[in-house]
Design a protein around this nucleic acid. Structure first.
Lengths: 169, 169
DNA sequence: CAAAACTTTCAAAAATATTTGAAAGTTTGA
DNA sequence: TCAAACTTTCAAATATTTTTGAAAGTTTTG
């Protein structure tokens, strides 16, 4: 395969992967473009490369910055904004974990907190007790997963590899 | 909050959570209904409870069975099919991990395998080398994550808690 | 075997998510 | 201060995903 085609294929595949991990397709494609580009790129160049509209480029670049996957940089004497992508794939993973914790796990934990204090009427005592029990189980599991994600998201790569070794033996 | 409302809220929230984890909303809602129901339910009853169409119920029940989150059961003397939900939330998580490995991680690993052997022409030597290097990094990380998921997906709950303890200290 | 009871399919409709691009907004420099 | 250079916004258009429901398919039973 030619380099040009390989780059194209990588951008497409990264886009598909992203859309399963809470990053929309264009957002992931922009990120992929930066992963395989060494120099800074302007919004204009991103539009050009990926054949997307100005608005789309702008929105998704902002989102990537929000996620900590892209950095704004200036070139002295240039008025235009330029961007640099986060290339460290371990850091990328940590950022994604962090964002998903915020957007999904925390809200779910809040709901579970509410639900496990449902009121028990005399006539549905047993049913309510079972419901509460199930909510507690789900809450306990979710909290553990949450803590584990927090730990991973705040650890460095060395720690991760060490843990991985331990897990695998 | 009343039990009825709590159940409703749980179904909605589980639906939202699901749609971020590769399980579509109705599929997750059906699963939620089973999580908080002790007896068997027929497709008819699921349709009724969640106010969804026959086709929708059928499709998503099949998908849940495919994912290993629902089991088909018979009631003797009854012609209708009944279903029972997987309630063990740890097992549910493992099944979801397994499915996502299959659907996302494996295809990505295949693509990365192809891309890292891109041909190097004399005129783009340096560029190609950098691209290959980046692909290798991403591949190494993805493989590790993949192995870790495999381990988790095939382990029992006790192992999980033990690891969790280790991680947290 | 026929028809009742039930399940599956799938094309069309509806709902949801994403993208566009023109217009409005902002910043900079002369 | 103004206008050029650039960025942001957002309503409408497009694309994608999900849902519907009627029709076709299958199984069971009398």
């Amino acid at each position: 395969m030619e380099l040009k085609d390989a780059k194209e294929k990588f951008i497409q595949s990264w886009g598909n992967l992203g859309s399963n991990w809470g990053v929309n397709k264009t957002m992931a494609q922009i990120h992929a473009l930066f992963l395989i580009t060494d120099h800074l790129l302007s919004a204009e160049e991103v539009m050009e490369e990926l054949q997307i509209s100005r608005g789309n480029a702008n929105m998704n670049i902002r989102a990537l910055i929000e996620w900590g996957l892209l950095y704004k940089e200036s070139i002295k004497g240039e008025r235009k904004e330029y961007f640099r992508g986060e290339k460290d794939i371990w850091l990328v993973a940590r950022r994604v974990i962090q964002m998903r914790q915020r957007q999904e796990i925390n809200p779910m934990l809040n709901v579970l907190g509410e639900l496990k204090v449902v009121e028990t009427n005399p006539e549905n005592k047993g049913e309510a007790a079972k419901f509460i029990e199930q909510m507690k189980q789900i809450e306990a599991f979710t909290q553990s997963a949450d803590r584990m994600f927090s730990k991973v998201a705040s650890s460095d790569e060395k720690w991760f590899w060490k843990i991985l070794m331990k897990l695998m033996r």
